[in-house]
Design a protein around this nucleic acid. Structure first.
Lengths: 234, 234
DNA sequence: TATGGTTGACCGCCCGTTCAGTCAACCAGT
DNA sequence: ACTGGTTGACTGAACGGGCGGTCAACCATA
């Protein structure tokens, strides 16, 4: 969360390895990343990395595991603090969009590297947890349908439409662009709620999306998700 | 176009190499694909591949170039045969969704491998052509805004929302799934037109999306796009 | 016999992984 | 306070496999 939390204590080496590795994989892909380059960037030896992590693949798995941890905690925070089905949905959309600024490298890695490689037990565990996460999201969607906010439809397909629009962000977003991530997130919320919503719901409400407290709540949830993990060990 | 055009003449070796290579890259990524494996699958030697293509990267570039060729021809066909701004938009959305069935491997490769690797002159040419393609799409979007079909907004961001939802398809779509690609495409059209449309446009029209002739036209345009390329040489 | 597709052996580089060994910190027991 | 032992972080050299790319020789057909 480079640009939000400002905790400038020097990170333990283990965490710095993970961080630099994540950045490399985000830029060059898993197979395009050489542990030697990561070591050089950190001014340490290649052996040190393998001392802290069993293998290159285990390192990737740890990155994915930590990422899904953060997303799960974040989502849990949101569901704990928001009850209204419509607002839950909005908060969810905001959260998975905002993490493209606050957790960009890991988001890229997660989006790209955990799609393929159907085998490999390490990565499969992460994929399984993602399925669990998706399942929770689908429950949020069904609740929104029950409340008359969204049109009835196959929840999995609705979820994929939402994920699709938001997740594409990592393919083009750059922090220095003309639009802030908040502006982008607002667009997504508006488009998706109108696009997937019932006629009544659209007519009734005029963009609660930008209600300040929802935004603040999401930001807070994200911050909490990061903290919960600061202590993580080998 | 494995599942639609049924032209069973044996492909020239050059084309078969490209086809198998594309399938491998779609499955394992560019760096995860070994030319030796491609050769083995084809029952030829590695040297033969390098005889037909200067290098592995040149092969990838050719795959990308052919893909963008097809998309450009397809889009040109559509624009030539459809004038109404709203129908143009619908046809475009249908086309980039349908190619997830009819051109799945290349679509996956294009979506994943041409995002990164900012250098490399070969691939940059392809990326440049994609920019041109995107530009044409944005003109379609602006025309739709002028016609009162879409809400006024930054066309590039609107384009990215459309691309996002549709392009995500390759991350999860499997031909044997419960929904046909046509059903999925209909969902996308509906969601995007309502989500991005003006209130009047939404109220006025009740899903022209599934008008049969638009579908047929898109399918035809796709078929033409394939044919135009069958003759391609070194 | 010339041409162009095809082969398979081979080179050289890259990179993940291993491992023996150094160094510093810490913790006894005396 | 001195000593010896244990642990754990870290190193650097070496190994070994994988893979892209080269090349000389080998057909086959015209």
């Amino acid at each position: 969360m480079s640009s939000v939390v400002v905790d400038e204590r020097p990170l333990p080496l283990r965490a710095r390895i993970q961080q630099v590795f994540t950045a490399f994989v985000a830029e060059h892909g898993f197979r395009g990343t050489a542990l030697g380059d990561v070591a050089e960037r950190l001014g340490i030896s290649k052996g040190t990395i393998l001392h802290h992590f069993k293998s290159k693949e285990a390192l990737l798995a740890r990155v994915g595991e930590d990422y899904i941890d953060r997303r799960e905690r974040e989502l849990r925070q949101i569901l704990r603090r928001v009850q209204d089905p419509r607002e839950r949905l909005i908060a969810f959309i905001l959260s998975i969009t905002l993490c493209h600024r606050d957790d960009l490298d890991a988001t890229r890695v997660f989006g790209r590297e955990f799609a393929r490689y159907a085998d490999s037990p390490h990565l499969n565990r992460v994929r399984e947890r993602r399925r669990g996460y998706t399942h929770t999201v689908e429950e949020v969607i069904v609740a929104a349908m029950d409340a008359g906010v969204l049109c009835r439809d196959e929840p999995s397909v609705v979820a994929l439409q939402i994920f699709g629009m938001c997740n594409w962000t990592w393919a083009w977003y750059q922090p220095e662009g003309p639009l802030t991530i908040e502006q982008i997130a607002d667009r997504y919320v508006r488009t998706l709620l109108r696009g997937l919503g019932t006629a009544e719901a659209i007519a009734a409400e005029e963009s609660v999306a930008r209600s300040a407290w929802l935004r603040a709540l999401v930001a807070e949830s994200a911050a909490l998700a990061w903290q919960g993990q600061a202590v993580r060990e080998g």
